[in-house]
């Protein structure tokens, strides 16, 4: 059995617009981006300069506890990035906070124009939470198809943050010692 190893070309870039955030740890997030040729041409056309002179800015918004609404973000900070760069490690972030980012340019009058928007991520805790509000559940009840003793709402997948709220009625009291 002798397979042949093909020598396919490796796609260097995808000529698409995207900005993606990843979490490195509780105090550092990583952003990578790519701009399509069309997008870059548009920008250089508008500004009348070459791409190497474009004042590119990575703006990071703190969205902790909010519903992904950039307009009401708690705060944001700007990082000047070299136009030829395509990634950045941002270390000015806090643990257990939600963030998203825009990649854009700042023109005169300090106005910020967004070119790309990123996904929303959440940095993990690096300290213990307090033990208040502890909630219990019984696995065997769950397996037997009974409704969970404690009910909680689960936010959509990914890193918007999972919020637990406990229903305020009789059913939510845990019953230990069963099973």
């Amino acid at each position: 059995m002798n397979a042949i190893v093909p020598q396919y070309g490796f796609p260097d870039r995808y000529n698409e617009n995207s900005l993606v955030l990843l979490v490195r740890d509780s105090r550092c997030i990583f952003a990578y981006w790519e701009l399509s040729d069309e997008q870059m041409d548009l920008v250089t056309g508008e500004l009348g300069c070459s791409w190497g002179e474009v004042p590119l800015v990575l703006r990071i918004y703190d969205l902790t506890g909010l519903n992904f609404n950039r307009e009401i973000a708690h705060s944001h900070f700007d990082l000047g990035v070299h136009p030829l760069a395509n990634n950045y490690y941002a270390k000015e972030v806090n643990a257990n906070h939600s963030y998203c980012a825009d990649l854009g340019i700042t023109i005169q009058e300090g106005r910020f124009i967004t070119l790309l928007r990123s996904n929303i991520i959440q940095t993990p805790r690096d300290t213990m939470a307090d033990g208040s509000g502890a909630v219990w559940a019984d696995m065997l009840d769950r397996l037997a198809g009974q409704p969970a003793r404690s009910d909680w709402g689960i936010a959509a997948f990914s890193s918007e943050g999972v919020y637990i709220y406990v229903r305020d009625d009789e059913e939510s009291k845990p019953e230990k010692g069963e099973g």
Binding site: N96, A137, D138, M139, E175, E178
Partner: peptide, 17 residues
């Protein structure tokens, strides 16, 4: 079978956690 419910943060057993 009865255990505490909690939400876990992102973590790993790699260096720095």
């Amino acid at each position: 079978p009865a255990n505490q419910v909690a939400s876990l943060p992102m973590s790993s057993w790699g260096q720095q956690g």
